[in-house]
Write a protein that binds this DNA or RNA. Structure first.
Lengths: 118, 118
DNA sequence: TTATTATATGAACAGATATTCATATAAGGA
DNA sequence: TCCTTATATGAATATCTGTTCATATAATAA
């Protein structure tokens, strides 16, 4: 890379280190996918409820006030992204959180938006 | 609310408390918007570079390998969401992070995706 | 078996989003 | 003044995403 840094007020050595240490493409891809999962109100609500109780699909649908199909699709999304897990009992599926980081993520984000009104 | 909890294996009192304490619509809205900002590779890269240096638009464009216009649009997005701030000097705009939480957010998310390959 | 209940999923559709292109603005130099 | 450079932004476009609808699956009850 050569076209870097036309604005010369930063240390070239340091910038090179920054480029060398940049997260690789796969990491960026996974990070953006991960955050996208939290970037939807319906999924956030689902995650909130699941952070409190293990719940079946019908109850989640009633809690977030969405159709069963919509919730089912979103649970699939959350499952594929390893944020929730299922336990089947007869015909009903019980979902719960599958990640210890969800809580931390919520907390930092809440901190951020609460400090926003300065 | 009444249609709640057809699956009766959870404590009704506790569920009512969960509903009572649920984040309000505005909080959900702000949270999902906040996370959406992180849900894009280009913006993640920009945030990474800005976490290391204050940089002008042209340099950012060269670093993330995108057109000036695309980067400018994304910086606008980040600015409106209060994650970056600008400092103007003549015709050039220097951008830097405007949020102490960005680093924490990155860290928790990286922890998550790194533990993913079990 | 037939009916019912709980959930999952493909297809269609609408709305959102990222990038590009063209152009505008605005500062500084010739 | 005119030209160049750095950035910003509106419009157009292509892609992605969330919800709905219809239907499939699978367990259980009658």
């Amino acid at each position: 890379m050569d076209a870097i840094c036309k604005c010369k007020n930063i240390d070239k050595k340091e910038l090179e280190r920054t480029v060398a240490e940049q997260p690789d493409a796969e990491t960026i891809e996974r990070l953006s996918t991960f955050f996208s999962v939290f970037g939807d109100g319906t999924r956030l609500k689902i995650l909130y409820y699941l952070s409190r109780h293990e719940l079946c699909v019908a109850d989640l649908a009633s809690l977030v006030q969405m159709g069963q199909s919509a919730v089912s699709h979103q649970l699939r999304n959350l499952r594929l992204n390893r944020l929730v897990k299922v336990r089947k009992e007869g015909t009903t599926s019980y979902y719960s959180l599958d990640d210890e980081h969800v809580q931390s993520i919520f907390e930092v984000a809440l901190e951020h938006i609460n400090e926003e009104q300065r």
